[in-house]
Design a protein around this nucleic acid. Structure first.
Length: 675
RNA sequence: GGAAAGGUAGCUCAGCCGGUUAGAGCACGGCACUCAUAAUGCCGGGGUCGAGGGUUCGAUUCCCUCCCUUUCCA
């Protein structure tokens, strides 16, 4: 039965580049879409740029460009990154489009006519200098609970307290630095609570992820609150109809961007919008999202659709986050790997394969371990999979370049093709990791087959050339089945293999019939090994790079590496990786529970850092306050029992006792670079 | 602060409802082979299944406490 399916992945926000976290989702979605198409289903994949909101407006101002120019530029970068990762969107649109405005107004008017909108006055921080209301994240101050400085207006990073900007002590606007004033303004609210029953029914439909369901139950229990969907001018977005000076909150028209993008596609292709979105539609609609936006997609979004007279999604597929080498992505650690950085160094398919090998239908986080990445890709893709074709192709070429007319081991071939139903179910259920395991164990079987029949030995006897061809025909056919199974993950390699095989590999069930008697194209390497050195370059902090260089020079033993630092010549580039700065000690104190450390608060010229330094034996805290010191400003932050140390203060020491702080000559100011 | 998921061989991970000697891939050691991008095949070493309690004839698997990691909180 032919299915009509519409699939989306979450809209990337137009204020920054794509990173590998975005790609987890895009790759998960793209594999699913390509798989559905191989099944012969009509599967459309749309996405769009999430282009509205205060952050975009501010960023554009800061860059001295219009928001339109900013989002156009970023969208182009995003488009290019997706394309190079072989993400096959049918449409990549933008929420700042006439189509999206049209659908947004349509839904809003319907929701309002249904009585689901209410208004209420809201007291909010207002920046008089900037002339605008401030979102929570744009108000900073001291945490009302623990007093930590420089916290956002919604929660404290230090103690985890959540509160509103009005609760902050000594609040200031992040835009102008002036204290905000509090003003009342009328806001529009979507009454989510009116949809509780509808949503609960909707969530019972289809197979939902248990963890997601548990979270939703929690939210239901807490009670569904009205959702503030309006923002005051100035705002970059759509003005609310009949409400001058009021704009739709970016999160209102962002999911509607799925519809806007699809409507634009309908215009291009002459598709029927209502066939997909009218209530009771028989088509399937799926959203792939990260778990951070589950609330929006499982509550607000279906409620808006329902209230707006449209159908709700068939299901929302939630995935976890990406960590790098076991920890979360971090700019200071250099593990914030952008799509562009990856693409500048490596081809896309190894990462697609690696992610596929770890993705399942759960919402657990996934780790990209760089060592594992190299090992996995080189072993599976090159050593096992491609090797099958590579080791057979030569014999076929020498035997006339044409596959034999029959398979010597039809039952082995049937075993391979018989797995296609089970593997298809795994793809369908988004259990890619299990699918990949299955496929790779078949690849092992294929290599075992070739090994057992030793075509290279047979080839020594010219009289047995038919046997050689037969064995290799078997091998090539097993390879073809495997490549077909992997085509959703590795579209480019499948395409190259298709050229070699003279068979399109575009139909999931085509492998039911083996490829016999047909000529083979010239064999060219289908994948190359990853170089660990190149992969290591994905992570690039200046400090990490310097350490990596030292370790490479000194061997793997890190102790040896440390000892070798003094004797190994450093290049000027190595030195340039260290960001040495002048800092002034603002405060110093003993650290309870440590007899070596002092906690220092350092002024870096506009920035304050906390550093733990093992100089207690040599310096008393009050000796240090006001002193100028040298620090490494880009040292990887280190979590200690007492807190996070964000740098290192430089001291001299010798074999004997004594630690001696370094200081600049008079005239140096905090923040100055040392070179 | 509230909550969720995870903690199984050096690494990345499988292990359904509790039950005989806990698995795979990679890495490591040995052997074989040489067609293949030093690829492949065979054999092997290696785990007190985060810690401590409890339930049970029996727990990696259930319950409690603690520790660690990641994440979410409209």
């Amino acid at each position: 039965m032919l299915r009509k399916i519409l699939v989306t992945s979450a809209l990337p926000y137009a204020n920054g580049p794509l990173h590998l976290g975005h790609l987890v989702e895009a790759i998960q979605t793209d594999i699913w879409v390509r798989f559905q198409r191989m099944q012969g289903h009509d599967c459309i994949y749309v996405c769009a740029e999430d282009a509205h909101g205060t952050p975009i407006m501010i960023k554009a101002q800061a860059e001295g460009v219009t928001p339109e120019a900013l989002i156009a530029r970023v969208a182009e970068e995003h488009r290019r990154d997706y394309r190079e990762f072989l993400i096959g969107h049918d449409q990549f649109h933008t929420t700042h489009s006439p189509e999206n405005q049209e659908v947004t107004y349509q839904l809003y008017r319907a929701v309002r006519a249904g009585g689901h909108i209410t208004t209420r006055s809201v007291r909010q921080a207002y920046d008089e200098q900037a002339g605008m209301f401030l979102p929570d994240r744009y108000v900073k101050g001291e945490c009302p609970r623990c007093g930590t400085a420089d916290q956002y207006g919604d929660s404290c990073e230090s103690c985890g307290a959540t509160y509103s900007p009005a609760d902050l002590r000594n609040p200031v606007s992040a835009l102008s630095g002036t204290p905000p004033v509090w003003r009342e303004s009328e806001h529009y609210f979507f009454q989510l609570g009116r949809f509780e029953a509808v949503l609960k029914d909707w969530l019972k439909t289809g197979a939902r992820q248990s963890q997601v369901r548990a979270k939703l139950d929690e939210w239901f229990e807490a009670g569904l609150q009205d959702w503030d969907i309006s923002r005051d001018a100035p705002y970059f977005g759509f003005e609310i109809p009949d409400a001058p000076g009021k704009y739709f909150y970016v999160w209102f028209d962002a999911p509607i961007g799925y519809l806007g993008a699809f409507r634009a596609l309908c215009k291009q292709r002459g598709l029927d919008f209502d066939e997909y979105w009218a209530p009771g539609s028989a088509t399937e609609v799926y959203h792939f999202i990260g778990k951070d936006i589950s609330y929006f997609h499982n509550l607000f979004w279906p409620a808006v659709l329902h209230g707006g007279g449209m159908r709700m999604p068939t299901a929302v597929f939630v995935h976890g986050f990406l960590t790098i080498n076991g920890t979360k992505m971090s700019k200071t650690r250099g593990t914030f790997i952008t799509a562009r950085r990856y693409l500048d160094l490596l081809p896309p398919e190894p990462l697609r394969y690696y992610f596929a090998g770890k993705l399942d239908s759960g919402i657990d986080d996934m780790d990209l371990s760089l060592d594992d990445f190299v090992a996995r890709v080189n072993s599976d893709l090159v050593g096992k999979l491609v090797n099958i074709a590579s080791r057979c192709a030569g014999f076929v070429a020498r035997g006339g370049g044409r596959l034999a007319a029959t398979l010597p081991d039809a039952s082995l071939y049937d075993e391979f093709t018989a797995r296609r139903t089970a593997i298809a179910q795994l793809y369908e259920a988004r259990e890619y990791s299990t699918a990949i395991r299955e496929i790779m164990s078949l690849a092992d079987r294929a290599n075992q087959y070739v090994d057992a029949h030793k075509p290279w030995a047979l080839a020594k006897d010219p009289a047995r050339s038919a046997e050689v061809l037969a064995v290799c025909t078997q091998g090539i056919n097993l390879f073809r089945v495997l490549m077909s199974y992997l085509a959703p993950v590795l579209p480019q390699m499948a395409c190259a293999a298709a050229k070699f095989l003279g068979d399109p590999l575009s139909d999931w069930n085509a492998v039911a019939k083996p490829l016999l008697g047909t000529p083979l194209g010239k064999y060219e390497p289908l994948a190359t090994r990853l170089d660990p050195k190149t992969v290591a370059q994905l992570i690039e902090t200046p400090a990490a790079a310097a350490i990596a260089t030292t370790q490479r020079q000194a061997g793997t033993d890190s102790k040896a590496a440390q000892a070798a630092v003094a004797t190994t010549a450093a290049t000027i580039q190595d030195f340039g990786k260290l960001d040495l700065r002048i800092a002034r000690v603002l405060a110093a104190s003993f650290v309870e529970g440590s007899d070596k450390l002092l906690q220092l608060s350092l002024d870096l010229g506009g920035e304050t850092r906390t550093v733990f330094s093992g100089i207690r034996a040599a310096y008393a805290p009050d000796q240090l306050v006001g002193r100028y010191v040298l620090m490494i400003a880009n040292l990887e932050p280190r979590k200690m029992r007492f807190g996070v140390s964000e740098g290192m203060v430089l001291c001299a020491s010798g074999d004997g006792p004594g630690i001696f702080l370094l200081s600049p000559d008079a005239g140096a100011e905090p923040g100055m670079r040392v070179s």
